[in-house]
C-alpha cells in the first residue's frame, strides 16, 4: 500500500529487451507506487545512470544479466565495489537459473536473484511481488524510501 513519500521512489532498470521492459512497466503500474523509472539498455549505461542519480540515491536497481556491452555481471560487481553505491539493493533478473550465475551474483553482492518465467502472467507476478517487497516492505538504508 502506498504511503506518503517526500520523494518519488527511484528505480533503475538495466534491461535490453523492450518486451521485458514493457512487462516491468506494467508491473510498476500494478504496484501503484510513485516510482520514477530510469532504464538503461546495457550494464555500462546502467552504471552511468546510477552515478548520475547518486545524490538522490536510487531506491532499487533491477539488473538483467545478459546485456550487450558491459553486461549485468560487470555492472553488479562495479556497483558493489563502489562505496557510494554499494548500499543500493540490486535485484538480478535472469532468463535461466544457471547455478554458476546464481553463485556469482550472490558472491558479488546481489540482494536477490530472480528467474524471468516465459509464461507472461508468471513473469508479471514475479515482478509485482519483488517490487512490492523491495519498494514497500523492505527497510532500506536511506530515509528517502517509502515505508508502510
Amino acid at each position: 500500500m502506498p504511503t506518503t513519500t517526500r520523494l518519488p521512489l527511484v528505480l533503475v532498470i538495466v534491461e535490453d529487451s523492450d518486451e521485458d521492459f514493457d512487462t516491468l512497466q506494467e508491473a510498476v503500474k500494478r504496484v501503484g507506487l510513485p516510482v520514477e523509472v530510469f532504464r538503461a539498455a546495457t550494464g555500462g549505461d546502467g552504471l552511468t545512470v546510477l552515478r548520475a542519480q547518486a545524490p538522490t540515491r536510487p531506491t532499487l536497481v533491477l539488473m538483467d544479466l545478459n546485456t550487450p556491452g558491459t553486461d549485468g555481471r560487470e555492472a553488479l560487481a562495479a556497483i558493489k565495489g563502489d562505496p557510494a553505491l554499494k548500499s543500493v539493493p540490486v535485484v538480478v533478473l535472469s532468463t535461466s537459473a544457471n547455478p554458476k550465475d546464481i553463485v556469482f551474483c550472490y558472491s558479488a553482492g546481489a540482494n536477490a536473484y530472480h528467474v524471468k518465467p516465459v509464461r507472461h502472467p508468471d513473469h508479471l507476478t514475479v515482478l509485482v511481488d519483488l517490487l512490492t517487497y523491495w519498494l514497500s516492505r523492505a527497510v532500506l538504508p536511506a530515509g528517502e524510501s517509502g515505508h508502510s
Binding site: 518486451e19 532468463t95 544457471n98 507472461h120
Partner: peptide
C-alpha cells in the same frame, strides 16, 4: 537456449496480451 528464451518470453507476452 538462454538467448532463445528471451524472444520466447516476448512472443508469449504478446499472445497473452
Amino acid at each position: 537456449s538462454h538467448d532463445l528464451k528471451e524472444p520466447l518470453r516476448g512472443i508469449h507476452k504478446y499472445a497473452h496480451q
